[in-house]
Design a protein around this nucleic acid. Structure first.
Lengths: 213, 213
DNA sequence: AGGTGTTTGAAACTTACGTTTTAATTTGAC
DNA sequence: GTCAAATTAAAACGTAAGTTTCAAACACCT
């Protein structure tokens, strides 16, 4: 057929990624996917086994490299003489997200939105398979943030990391709470450069704010 | 039958609220709802018309009062002589959320989670019906934050409000990004008092952080 | 008590879903 | 070119979904 038309598996993954983000897992039918991917209905079950397995495949295709990129950035940062700073740590997460968001070949910002959706939906995939698979990720960041912000108690630091990663994920996913209420939403809310420009100072301020007594 | 057993409509709403949060709109069937609510299957369509209308009813039952409570807090704050502070403004939103979260009779923290889920899922209900219905909410906060933080440019302020409301919603919804990766999640992540203790300083720091050049 | 409008109950209807099956087609090695 | 394996195509299967129907039960007013 055509030269640069991706193969069946890739076409299914690409279309699924987009549709899962747009409509969610449950509301996306295999017939929608196979129709838009221009493949036969049975192709999904043939190549992936089930709709659940397809979802996992869509997910792991992007998450693995993203985590790897963060860990690689952490390696570089920890190679420096002086210990990691909060800003340096935040950027080890921001940069891979930004890179992913700007690369259409890797799904652009789609995957971060999918990740965000899946998180909120509390999928069993995240609770079971992935949680222990990427436990190194959280472990490394926990240790590094303890070094970068030693003046914070363990409880406070855990909470701030929780809040910081939450707001970062949300920002990259383009989740705009205020858009429900506002007619004029932020026009640049999904421009990756703009995200970083405003997100990083916000997160850093929250992370490094002096503890209240 | 029993004395304090709520009527059919209320039982349906209560069960729906919980199930929509747990499984999402699409994955929650009317048969699940009517079974747990101990009402007939046809009762949903009789009282609400459709599953979509039921969802809207579940939603508006809580959102209206929550918005009203925020606006009432804003009224009080704006009645003071000196203009509103960022902290005062944040608290006008935090207090009603906290109050809702602590009140089981009003669904406790369930509704905030439903709101968060619905936001991320980008339901048409939020895009269409509710957006203009509660536009006063965003309008009032926009004006008030402009007064409280006059040194920020309009762009920066919009972004910070966007990020601040995002992290506040997320915190109250108990969305824990790191829980995918960590075995030991924050145990207190859904204790309302703990949320406020750590959330408010974080958000305030982000909102009032000096602008970078 | 009788009668009217409202609510509930049980069943069926239509549709769409994920999956399976079987045959046709294509691919790749010898 | 041939044959076996892998892939695609088309159709059907069983199930569960939202909705509708219609009769029975209930509530309320005079």
């Amino acid at each position: 057929m055509e030269a640069n038309r991706p193969d069946t598996v890739t076409r299914i993954l690409d279309v699924s990624e987009r549709l899962f983000v747009e409509h969610g897992f449950e509301a996306t039918s295999l017939r929608m996917i196979t129709q838009q991917a221009e493949v036969n209905l049975a192709a999904v079950n043939y190549h992936f086994g089930s709709k659940d397995a397809l979802f996992e495949a869509v997910f792991t295709r992007r998450l693995g490299p993203l985590i790897e990129a963060c860990l690689a950035e952490l390696d570089v940062l920890e190679g420096n003489k002086e210990g990691p700073t909060a800003e340096g740590l935040v950027m080890t997460f921001i940069r891979p997200c930004l890179s992913l968001s700007k690369d259409p070949a890797r799904g652009g910002a789609l995957f971060v939105r999918l990740l965000s959706r899946t998180l909120v939906e509390n999928h069993r995939l995240l609770r079971e398979s992935l949680s222990q698979q990427y436990s190194e990720f959280a472990q490394r960041y926990s240790v590094a943030f303890r070094q970068a912000l030693p003046e914070l108690s363990l409880e406070t630091l855990s909470w701030r990391m929780h809040l910081a990663f939450g707001v970062m994920f949300n920002a990259f996913a383009g989740n705009d709470v205020l858009k429900i209420f506002m007619r004029s939403q932020i026009v640049s809310a999904r421009d990756p450069e703009m995200i970083v420009k405003h997100l990083v100072p916000f997160v850093l301020a929250g992370l490094t704010s002096p503890v209240q007594e």
